[in-house]
Nucleic acid binder design. Structure first.
Length: 333
DNA sequence: CTACGCTA
DNA sequence: TAGCGTAGG
């Protein structure tokens, strides 16, 4: 998923508390939905569902997470992917195969009563469908949180908005947003908090990565940084066998990108991938307006349609000063 | 994921 | 009151 740049970016990650984040952030919506969908599950892998079997994990995630964002002075805008570029066709197909196979193994694991394996495979089989996307957008509207559909990749649009200064950062788990040129990337925004990793309880904090620090530290221009990404592989090209982030870094620093591609992958033309990262399809046609949450609308949707507990929903809304019959926002905006 | 109830 | 396990939908 995304680029395998973790190995060379470690020292540029700055952990921080959610409380200290504040400001506006363009959230990669598919990335966030995917995380909610993989994480909010029962021990056997079954996602939260209403009585009609419609998945509601993503709605739970969006609702409670955004309440916390608003409460802490973080104003998110959600950026959905538009049509994937042709360069991504193979990646999309491969992911679908992997998910479908995991879906099969989930069923098998359930059948033999292997709960642990079922959970693992269920997570790997998580898929975002049209109904989830539509219900997510509806809930965001009711919460007064802006969203938009990008012309192409959501991360590219989020990076563009951050570069324009319209948001303080792009939020995603993937490092691609840095290749798209976001000045600041926030990771772990939608997954921070207490998590269980191999039986142990750990605290996952949001982390910030500044592109300028990365480029200065690695001694690369942005174009060269993109070359490192291309060598290791991105959503838009498979990368070159046997070349990890550290080797790629050496190659690019030595000015041997072109030479290496010609030698190891003579049929691969990196031009279109480089061009896609440098100037992806993006739009200036957006307005980021944060409005008052519509309490009654939220209750009607979550509680009446999707069987959420009104007590829980109300308690959450009260944290941001939204009570029954009242639409006051308080001091946040 | 978050909320909540239970335990020390 | 903090920490932990589990329900939520």
């Amino acid at each position: 998923m995304g680029v395998a740049l973790r190995n060379i970016l470690g020292e540029y990650r700055e952990e921080m508390e959610l409380e200290n984040l504040r400001g506006t952030v363009a959230v990669d919506a598919f990335n966030a939905l995917y995380q909610f969908l993989t994480i909010i599950r029962q021990p056997d892998g079954t996602p939260l569902m209403d009585s009609e079997g419609r998945v509601t994990s993503h709605l739970s995630g969006i609702f409670f997470r955004n309440i916390n964002f608003l409460e802490k002075g973080i104003r998110p805008a959600y950026i959905f992917d538009g049509a994937p570029p042709d360069l991504k066709t193979e990646t999309v197909a491969r992911r679908r195969e992997v998910r479908d196979a995991a879906g099969e193994r989930w069923k098998e694991a359930i059948a033999r009563g292997d709960i642990g394996e079922a959970y693992k495979q269920a997570r790997a089989s998580a898929r975002i469908d049209d109904a989830m996307i539509a219900s997510s957008k509806r809930l965001l509207d009711l919460m007064g949180i802006p969203w938009m559909v990008a012309p192409s990749e959501g991360e590219a649009q989020a990076a563009f908005m951050a570069r324009q200064g319209d948001v303080g950062a792009a939020a995603s788990q993937d490092y691609d947003a840095l290749l798209f040129g976001t000045p600041r990337l926030v990771r772990n925004l939608t997954v921070s908090g207490r998590r269980k990793v191999r039986g142990r309880s750990v605290t996952v904090r949001p982390e910030r990565i500044d592109l300028s620090a990365v480029l200065a530290g690695l001694g690369l221009s942005r174009a060269e940084f993109i070359e490192v990404g291309i060598l290791t592989g991105t959503d838009f090209n498979p990368g070159i066998r046997g070349i990890g982030a550290k080797t790629a870094l050496k190659i690019v620093r030595a000015g041997k990108f072109q030479e290496t591609v010609q030698e190891k992958a003579p049929d691969f033309d990196p031009g279109p991938v480089r061009e896609f990262f440098l100037s992806p399809p993006v739009t200036e046609g957006y307005r980021l307006d944060w409005n008052k949450p519509d309490r009654d609308g939220i209750v009607a949707m979550l509680c009446e349609e999707y069987a959420f507990s009104e007590g829980r929903v109300d308690a959450a809304l009260q944290k941001i000063g939204t009570k029954a019959g009242q639409k006051t926002l308080g001091d946040w905006f």
